[in-house]
């Protein structure tokens, strides 16, 4: 019975995803829907390491960019079937994650943040240095569009891209949900909240963190590939500060450490960012303020607020017990 209840949401979720573009037919609304799915995928995959595992992983944006550049190079320089570029980009991001994971082996906390941030920046320098392959600061233009049979995915207000993005989002949501409920997910929470206790119970930190790191990177790589096909161009912007802060605001607004929170965050931040599109630097101001206000008043994000509302609705009488403060002050 509980099984039925917990899985009943999925068909509803799928139906909503399918119905959305039929309700919103305007090309601009369709583009926003596509962005919801792409940012949703990215924010969820980043939340695996940042929120659930508590790794200060700032390399996710690098994996996204590596996926985008892999697709850009494959699609313009080789005659490969564009559809194959999607999984290959995921795989190349996965390989890159093995390099980015090296500092996680021996470092903790903030040092991992420094090393992984540097990794992402290093990608920019490598792209600029290999101008013959990557186009340097000009980027790669003229990436062929995806098509299915005779149907270009761009046709009818990019509806093909929307369904591809929605399929990815659905798959990643299932993946994240299954992962977080699995023993892997449990052990990640245990490692995050009390590493010493978790390792003493036989959990291998390096192994579990490596798995979640690779999964997150592969998803980000596929999202990068999707982004490259969607825009038709790739530039070093994909590694940039813009994506980094946008995604962070999505994760923290939605609720880091919640499965569905980042999707909600992605929708809200994409909408806010779209409304302020013509406001120039004000847009960044508003998004930065949004991050800060959420951190100040609701550190668990919208998911945390929704949770506490639901709990108080279900059990009105006894006050919710104060959660015990976790002791995760591990540094080097």
């Amino acid at each position: 019975m509980t099984n039925l209840r917990s899985w009943a949401g999925w068909p509803v979720y799928a139906t909503v995803l399918v119905a959305l573009p039929l309700v919103f037919t305007d090309p601009h609304a369709r583009l926003l829907l596509i962005l919801f799915t792409m940012y949703g995928v990215l924010a969820m995959s980043w939340n695996l390491t940042l929120g659930f595992a508590g790794i200060f992983n700032f390399a996710q944006i690098g994996f996204f960019g590596i996926g985008a550049y892999t697709t850009g190079i494959l699609a313009t320089r080789t005659g490969i079937d564009p559809w194959l570029a999607l999984p290959i980009s995921g795989f190349s991001a996965l390989l890159a994650s093995l390099v980015a994971f090296l500092p996680v082996l021996r470092l903790r906390g903030i040092y991992v943040g420094l090393a992984t941030y540097v990794f992402s920046q290093l990608c920019i320098y490598l792209v600029l240095g290999q101008a013959g392959l990557t186009g340097g600061s000009n980027g790669i233009v003229g990436i062929p569009r995806l098509s299915l049979g005779d149907v270009n995915l761009r046709a009818d207000g990019r509806i093909g891209y929307y369904f591809l993005g929605a399929a990815l989002l659905f798959a990643v949501t299932v993946l994240v949900r299954v992962l977080t409920r699995s023993t892997l997910g449990m052990s990640l929470l245990a490692l995050r909240d009390n590493e010493a206790l978790a390792t003493s119970r036989g959990v291998s930190r390096v192994r579990q963190h490596l798995i979640v790191f690779m999964v997150g990177a592969a998803v980000a790589g596929v999202a990068g590939s999707f982004n490259a096909f969607l825009n038709g161009v790739v530039s070093t912007d994909v590694f940039g500060f813009g994506y980094l802060t946008l995604l962070l605001s999505m994760i923290f607004l939605g609720g880091s450490g919640s499965v569905y929170g980042p999707i909600v965050g992605a929708v809200v931040v994409t909408l806010v960012s779209d409304v302020l599109q013509d406001a120039g630097a004000w847009r960044d101001m508003v998004i930065a303020m949004l991050i800060l206000v959420v951190l100040w008043i609701a550190p668990k994000g919208l998911a945390g607020i929704a949770n506490s509302v639901l709990t108080s609705l279900r059990r009105p009488r006894p006050p919710a017990p104060e959660p015990l403060p976790t002791t995760s002050k591990e540094t080097v």
Binding site: F241, L244, T245, L248, S249, F252, D284, M285, I287, A288, M289, I291, L292, L295
Partner: peptide, 9 residues
């Protein structure tokens, strides 16, 4: 994260 937001600001 807060200081990253401050950078943006």
């Amino acid at each position: 994260v807060a200081t990253l937001a401050a950078t943006m600001l």
